[in-house]
Simulated assay, not measured.
Amino acid sequence: MELDTSTIIWIVVGVIALIALIAVVAWIATSNRRREAQVEARRREADEMRERAAEVDQAAREREVRAAQADAAARDAQARAAEAELEAERLADASREHRTDAERLRAEQAEHARGAEAVDPDVIDDRDEGRPAQPERTEPERTEPERTEPARSSEPPRTEEPRQPNT
């Protein structure tokens, strides 16, 4: 069988067209696979970003909880400090009241002692023979409350803790 030139040319053109068609189909197929691979890579990247966002969110929530706890502890400490200040004021008021009572009682005691000396026939006053007006006593009369310093020790002084209300 003899092939003429035009048939050979048509066969070569057909083969080239077939190769071109196969190349285009192959290129489209690989392009789709490449696109699918890129889409899958982006999905993985998005998942990783979501995981990181979830971790950061969890860390933020933990920090918020710690901040709330620290805030509550600070408010509690402020409340205890306010209670301690009120207790200190109450104790200072009580101390002033006791001191005032003690001074009043000392003044009353001195008044009674002067009254007793005025009535006592054994007390010699300045008008009698130039002797001193004070009786001879072994213990001197005191007009101020006796102040004693507490014994020094290595332990701090004990104070009564303010009572916490039951909640």
Rank of each mutant, 00 (worst) to 15 (best):
T5W: 14
T5N: 14
T7N: 02
I8R: 03
I8V: 05
I9L: 00
W10C: 00
V13K: 03
V13A: 01
G14Q: 04
V15H: 00
L18I: 08
L18K: 05
A20V: 10
L21F: 14
A29S: 07
N32L: 12
V39H: 07
E40N: 12
R42Y: 10
R43Q: 14
A46W: 07
A46K: 09
A46L: 13
E48P: 02
E51F: 14
E51P: 03
A53E: 15
A53M: 15
A54Q: 15
A59M: 15
R63T: 09
R63H: 12
E64I: 08
V65T: 08
R66C: 04
A67T: 05
A67H: 02
Q69Y: 07
A70N: 12
D71W: 09
D71H: 09
A72Q: 11
A74C: 01
R75A: 11
D76M: 03
A77F: 03
A77M: 04
A77W: 01
Q78G: 09
A79P: 03
R80H: 06
A81Y: 05
A82I: 10
E83R: 13
L86E: 13
A88M: 10
A88K: 11
L91F: 00
L91C: 02
S95H: 03
R96G: 00
D101T: 07
A102M: 07
A102G: 01
A102Q: 06
R106G: 00
Q109N: 04
A110G: 02
H112Q: 15
A113V: 08
R114P: 01
G115F: 05
A118V: 04
A118K: 10
V119G: 02
V119K: 09
V119Q: 11
I124P: 01
D125N: 11
R127H: 10
D128F: 12
E129P: 03
G130D: 15
R131V: 15
P132Y: 06
T143I: 11
P145M: 07
E146C: 03
E146G: 07
E146F: 04
R147Y: 05
T148E: 10
T148R: 12
E149A: 08
E149M: 09
A151T: 14
R152W: 14
S154I: 11
R163W: 11
Q164W: 04
P165D: 03
N166H: 06
